[in-house]
Amino acid sequence: MADKSSSNAYWKANIRLIQVCLVIWALVSFGFGIILRPMLMGINVGGADLGFWFAQQGSILVFLVLIFFYAWRMNQLDREHGVEE
């Protein structure tokens, strides 16, 4: 077990990273895909609008990027704080 102060800093860094990722997660799905769609109506994407594209394609692609980014960054944090397996 790592000492208390290091694992606290580790946990804080983790929470910050989660917060950033979840803001993006909500923005592309609930935001661009649903609530903010009227604001994106003017941006045309092949017969529909950008909000429609985010709802049916874009949000899923962003989700993928988020998960891989989080996994990569957390594995880095694990090593920086000496708490890796």
Binding site: I18, C21, L22, W25, S29, G33, F52, A55, Q56, S59, I60, F63, L66, I67, Y70, A71
Partner: peptide, 18 residues
């Protein structure tokens, strides 16, 4: 019905992060 597309994929973000 895009809600099915976003809903059933977006949950993986919660799963992976939380």
């Amino acid at each position: 019905t895009s809600l099915f597309l976003m809903g059933w994929t977006g949950g993986y973000v919660l799963l992976a992060l939380l």
